[in-house]
């Protein structure tokens, strides 16, 4: 039986917001799972997310690739579709408010959801364990950030110097989370802002959380 997290609800019965609140308030073990969105099941490893509780473990490579520290998870029950996440993402990375270049998107499904369930939310990069974007890149532009860069997040990032604009990564991404800057002819993706994602800080509805991945049992 699933462990009760919020009141007498199981994780499946709770909203992401409740779980996040719960996670902040109560130390939890790394065996607990957070169901933050319909798409993603992310395991929580106490460590940073739980501010001081749990034991920090050195991550280990999986099939030779270092897993990313975590990903940004969105809660569709809270997102108000203001798209300030898209604004701050594009502004901080590209120097201009430019939602079309944001590395996460509420907008892609916004109108459809606004006319149906209302459950719009940002789609975010999954920072895949087995990153299709990195594998598809012919020049090594898309790569796993090394220790010492991007805040030791091991984020899957694109080096603009090496990017030739072939868009292989964009085609390879199963979640369509790579965007293309037509002006600069470069591909862009989420780099986790060095471990402190601006979108998470920006959200006025607490709909975004940076959730560290768990080490698999």
């Amino acid at each position: 039986m699933a462990e009760k997290l919020v009141g007498d609800k199981t994780p499946e019965e709770s909203t992401g917001f409740e779980l996040i609140l719960n996670a902040i308030k109560n130390p939890i073990t790394r065996r607990r799972f957070l169901q933050g969105s319909a798409l993603t099941v992310v395991a929580i490893a106490g460590a940073d997310f739980l501010a001081g509780c749990g034991r920090k473990k050195e991550p280990q490579p999986v099939n030779g690739i270092m897993p990313a520290k975590g990903m940004v998870v969105a809660d569709e029950t809270l997102c108000g579709s203001c798209r300030r996440c898209e604004l701050v993402c594009s502004y901080s990375h590209n120097g201009a408010p430019w939602p079309a270049l944001a590395r996460l998107t509420v907008d892609r499904k916004r109108a459809e959801y606004a006319m149906s369930t209302g459950l719009f939310k940002p789609e975010t990069c999954h920072q895949c364990e087995d990153p299709a974007c990195v594998k598809a890149c012919p020049t090594g532009a898309a790569h796993v950030a090394a220790k010492g860069e991007f805040g030791d997040t091991y984020a899957r990032v694109i080096d603009p110097e090496k990017c030739v604009g072939c868009r292989s990564c964009e085609r390879a991404c199963p979640f369509h989370m790579v965007v293309f800057n037509e002006q600069a002819k470069k591909s862009l993706k989420c780099d986790l802002c060095g471990g402190d994602p601006r979108c998470v800080k920006e959200c006025p509805a607490s709909a975004l959380t940076f959730v560290p991945f768990a080490k698999k049992a």
Partner: peptide
């Protein structure tokens, strides 16, 4: 169901 905001909003009054 939830609050909805316009583009760039910090209030989400809908």
């Amino acid at each position: 169901v939830k609050n909805q905001g316009c583009f760039g909003c910090i209030v989400n009054c809908f």
